[in-house]
Design a protein around this nucleic acid. Sequence first.
DNA 1: CACTAATCGAGACGGTACGTCCAGTCTTATG
DNA 2: CATAAGACTGGACGTACCGTCTCGATTAGTG
Lengths: 178, 178, 178, 178
Amino acid sequence: MLAAAAELLDESGYGKLSIEGIAARSGVAKSTIYRWWRSKADLVMEAYTEVTARRVPGPDTGGVQEDLRVFLDTLYRVNANAGRARVLRGLMAEAQLDDGFRAAFQEWIQSRRTLMSTILMRGVERGELAEDLDVEYTVDSVFGPFWYRLLVGHAELDPADAPKHVAQLLRGAGYRAP
Amino acid sequence: MLAAAAELLDESGYGKLSIEGIAARSGVAKSTIYRWWRSKADLVMEAYTEVTARRVPGPDTGGVQEDLRVFLDTLYRVNANAGRARVLRGLMAEAQLDDGFRAAFQEWIQSRRTLMSTILMRGVERGELAEDLDVEYTVDSVFGPFWYRLLVGHAELDPADAPKHVAQLLRGAGYRAP
Amino acid sequence: MLAAAAELLDESGYGKLSIEGIAARSGVAKSTIYRWWRSKADLVMEAYTEVTARRVPGPDTGGVQEDLRVFLDTLYRVNANAGRARVLRGLMAEAQLDDGFRAAFQEWIQSRRTLMSTILMRGVERGELAEDLDVEYTVDSVFGPFWYRLLVGHAELDPADAPKHVAQLLRGAGYRAP
Amino acid sequence: MLAAAAELLDESGYGKLSIEGIAARSGVAKSTIYRWWRSKADLVMEAYTEVTARRVPGPDTGGVQEDLRVFLDTLYRVNANAGRARVLRGLMAEAQLDDGFRAAFQEWIQSRRTLMSTILMRGVERGELAEDLDVEYTVDSVFGPFWYRLLVGHAELDPADAPKHVAQLLRGAGYRAP
DNA sequence: CACTAATCGAGACGGTACGTCCAGTCTTATG
DNA sequence: CATAAGACTGGACGTACCGTCTCGATTAGTG
């Protein structure tokens, strides 16, 4: 079923996805799908994270600068994968419309944010970043532009720009090379 | 009809909004709504911007710092207005699901981004900001976190934090007091 | 407008005909059509009879047999004209669905029946037909099969068969050559 | 659903009948109706024939005259049943407007015509009717006037007149008592 | 000759019903 | 016993026309 969902997502996007369609494609009864997932979004979320979440720990290279660069590089590569980008956009959309799904989605987002804030807090501890840094806001300064461009689609984030962005972020965060 | 749409939005949110519901509430025929708007999202967008778009020009106080502060302050106040926040989230969601609406939404977003980039470019011209500043990315560093928090809902942006955020942004952008 | 109606009838048949379509085609406002006709059927009826009703009096050749032959021959030729046949079918259909039109249609039908009954009554007077002939039923024995085949479409009436049918009708009506 | 359709037909006639109305009356969802019938006409046809088609074989009394009399008597009694008459008229109308239904309707009509032609052919075989009789036309001479009067409504067929009509038909068909 | 009517085009409007899609629930039978 | 198959209620979709109803913009005929 997850496979069928993934296929259909690739073919026509989240908006056109229907439980009935997945059932038909996977040769499974609708009721069986409902037994296992509460909604389209839950299913898709699982289909997505199954592929994705190899429980990648955030990078730990010993320096904030490099940690950030690696993280952003990885993050920006998602843009390149049209299918994955479409899925993310669909999940975010669903989270706005379905309160039930919203919580699950928030949790997932939170797990991603934690990776980032761990990196930053290590930087603070090491004295690389300002002691009074607003970590939460800085985390959102990384993910915010990413999602914003993904959702609005006015421009793409190029992995090649990651170092430049890291520099700007670090300057803002009071970076001082150790 | 716009009024009816606004009411219903407030009452039950974008996800529950239906053209049929608006028609019933406003005592108007469904076909009349379809005569004037191509989709639910178009209607809501108009209902929203009618209230909002007093064609506010971006602030121009003579200095980037103050311009930014005013802008962020205004922006962050949207969060406080639960109704307006809900509408924005709904519009963003729709833009992910309906390609027809996506274009209109992008245009609107672009107009908002232009306000911000005007402010920044003035700063560059005055020599307050780095000459080689990536203006587009910096614009997205303002709107990105705003939308991200709005959509995910993990935290609220407090207008009181605007000055702090401005400072961080400016540091990142190579600010030098004139 | 009548011309436009006729064109559209030919193109797509009575079922697909709409007042709005006629208005668009004829470059006339819907309201103007409603000023002149009470319904689609009224309009079509006029469009039809305008072409048709050259106030043909029934034939009067001096003998029932020849009168009937001429009449049936003319009648059967309608079948050949696909457009005209389609219109007649549409009018009959409308007469079943719209009580307002029904009356007008009945009147028109009656005028056609009168032609036929005149022919038959002349035959009775001349002693060619049985004195106690049920003229009304006999009239319907002419028009009945015509409409029946027209409406059901299981077979066509060939003008070449008219003489044979006349013979059968006359035998049934107690015909005796004068 | 069939019951609801029948009720509504009786109450307001075929023209006013709507699928939505039937759904409401029968407490069934519109989609359920569409699952089982492709159109209003299909449904009504079934509602009608369910009641009617007790698979009545044509009468076989041993003589054409009596067979015909029985058949016409039964046929003419339909006129008396206002509800049934209205349904028949509606079906005929629909067959003119909807090509999809037309075929189904023709088939039903054909089955009724076959009953009649069987009777006539038996008569020919027995030598009661002219050897070269145009059976098809004669069949239409029975049903034609029936439908014609039913549809136009200018007069009713009285079962009491059946014998007279049989006599006239048989004379026309070259009847010779065996 | 200006002025009133009548007449028209354009098309907005409240409505009704259409036929479709899908959600989510529930029942049956099959392996 | 979980499942496939799929029937069912229900809600909304977007479309097509209906018949009614203002609106000006022509025209015509009259005073």
